[in-house]
Nucleic acid binder design. Structure first.
Length: 208
DNA sequence: TAGGCCATCTGGTCCT
DNA sequence: AGGACCAGATGGCCTA
């Protein structure tokens, strides 16, 4: 998308460089002004010095404005980039979430909520499976460094684990190599998956 | 046309 | 000082 500068950058802001000392002295407009052609008496040395000071200040302010504007432009660029990265991450998240039949793209908030519910549901699946096997363990969600498939059978040879400390933001996450887009692959818990995947709206009360 | 979603800009704050 | 992050503002696009 094309970058369009806001008013701040163009019309309404203070970034008006039209009145620098250079232009004061060189512009044809100025030379055509009455002040320069009316035979005004030459300024006194004091006046000239004051004028010089004003010019120095004007140059300074203009420089400051240029620097500020450059910084702003760079910051905007970084911010744009940052948001693009965020969107890429969201797309990556969408891609590992089960697809919907109507193939509508989830909005950002939907993606996050769905992911939250999906993780919760998978954890529940594991917990229930473990219960059936007579194991008793804590709900996986509460355990950092868990395997997302737990000890449950992983037909596709799925190996997906989060690094320890994954509960905090990790700079090097390892991604699940399974294909959550095909929840039916987990045939042991298929019925659960179906429920989990397609009724996520209802899985975590309060989320929706 | 109103409302939702999104991209972008912007200024403030915190961190390195 | 400069970059990252954040939240508010704004305007465009789309849909019911």
């Amino acid at each position: 998308m094309e970058t369009v500068f806001s008013d701040m950058d163009t019309s309404s802001c203070d970034y008006s460089f039209t009145h620098t000392d250079d232009e004061d002295s060189r512009s044809s407009l100025h030379s055509a002004s009455p002040a320069s052609s009316c035979g005004k008496p030459p300024a006194s040395p004091a006046e000239l010095q004051q004028k010089k000071r004003r010019r120095g200040r004007a140059r300074n302010e203009a420089t400051v404005h240029v620097v500020k504007k450059n910084r702003r432009v760079k910051a905007n660029d970084r911010e744009r980039n940052r948001m693009h990265n965020l969107n890429d991450a969201l797309d990556a998240l969408r891609s590992v979430l089960p697809a919907f039949p109507d193939d509508t793209k989830l909005t950002k908030i939907e993606t996050l909520r769905f992911a939250h519910n999906y993780i919760w549901a998978l954890s529940e699946t594991i917990r229930i499976a473990d219960q059936r096997q007579g194991k008793s363990r804590d709900p996986p969600l509460l355990r950092p460094g868990l395997s997302c498939m737990g000890d449950a059978p992983s037909p596709g040879g799925n190996s997906c684990s989060w690094p320890s400390g994954a509960s905090s933001s990790s700079s090097s996450p390892s991604y699940c190599s399974s294909d959550p887009g095909s929840p039916a692959a987990m045939d042991d818990f298929g019925y659960l998956q179906t429920d989990v995947v397609y009724s996520y709206h209802n899985f975590v009360p309060g989320i929706y």
